[in-house]
Design a protein around this nucleic acid. Sequence first.
DNA 1: GGCGGCTGAATGAATCACCATTCAGTTTTC
DNA 2: GAAAACTGAATGGTGATTCATTCAGCCGCC
Lengths: 205, 205
Amino acid sequence: MVIHSAANKRKSSAPDKRDRILKAAVKVFAKNGFYATRVSEIAKAAGVADGTIYLYFKNKDDVLISIFEDGIQRLLTILRKVAASDDRVEHRITRIIELQLGLLEDQRDLAEVITVNLRQSSRLLKQYAAPLFMEYIEVLAGVVDEGQKQGTFRGDLNSRVVARALFGALDGILLTWALGDADPQALRKAASHCANLFLEGLKER
Amino acid sequence: MVIHSAANKRKSSAPDKRDRILKAAVKVFAKNGFYATRVSEIAKAAGVADGTIYLYFKNKDDVLISIFEDGIQRLLTILRKVAASDDRVEHRITRIIELQLGLLEDQRDLAEVITVNLRQSSRLLKQYAAPLFMEYIEVLAGVVDEGQKQGTFRGDLNSRVVARALFGALDGILLTWALGDADPQALRKAASHCANLFLEGLKER
DNA sequence: GGCGGCTGAATGAATCACCATTCAGTTTTC
DNA sequence: GAAAACTGAATGGTGATTCATTCAGCCGCC
């Protein structure tokens, strides 16, 4: 009966559980950091047994990597779309800034895991984060480049340096926000100030 | 003969040893990260016995904290001096940027420990780094504020947001530099581009 | 001046708490 | 009732920290 019933239980209970584990891990990592977090804490927070974690992830590292990849890949996908749009370049930059800060504003824990915990393991950082990070920089630098070529942005700044600076600036703002008050209003305002600052600095005169 | 010989052995070997341990720790932390580093590795790199570390430091955390405090305190001291000078504010900003990037350019390992390892433990980060970080931001924001009051900088940007963005930008540049090629020339050029970008963005028109 | 004894820095092997991972057994699903 | 999913106690490896021991340098006594 019920060929596959209410939606699904099998096919969905698995992904569902994987998701619950990831969400729980984000929460616990954000609070205690990666290394100080026991696998059993993640399990407890997710409401599963310790061993269950290992049905969905190779090991503890894999949990962190998965959080990171899910989060960044999602961000990168949207970023690429915005970068490739045919908006004016200034507007694209603004949208990227709002995107990066906005995407995380209602996900404070994720923001903290990405900005802080990501750097916890040099190995993870170098192996997983660095390439994605560079990709992010490339996309951003591409937009700046385009602006320079079409004469909208001044041409005397290295586009990659600008991209790194912009990324760092957003990361810094996000970091203080995650560690501090975390008022969403403040973040939105910071985004607009930041965009304004960079665009004025980039403008060809 | 030789009343007390080549300088001294007792009184000087102690501070000297503490220093050797710190220097060794910076090197090993930079290569492997804080958590992946064994105390015995630090000991070996410093040429002392494992136990000796505990004569100079309370525990492994204390080694990291000491590295951090030494490094940042030195930076903060100079920063405050520059910030309080009576140079034109634009020039002060430029000097601060060059200072932060320049201070570390010949200390790549320290740069990596401070930008990467520092974030390894949420506890350490929140307890030790956050306050110093905020102090750094305050000093920076103070200069921006001053520039705004005297009409050199535009007044419509929140000075703390600008400070955070600037700090983040420098951190981001330093991070890619520490993880990547680490060409000192590149860092110096990045510093000047970054200064230029921010100053143009800040200028009152 | 040289000798016996004292001090405390330094050592590194042994301890032991900790925790990721496993897997034998149980429950759920179909 | 078989297979899949799940459980959580037991295991084993690891590595920070300890501490009994060593020994270099120093003192004061003869």
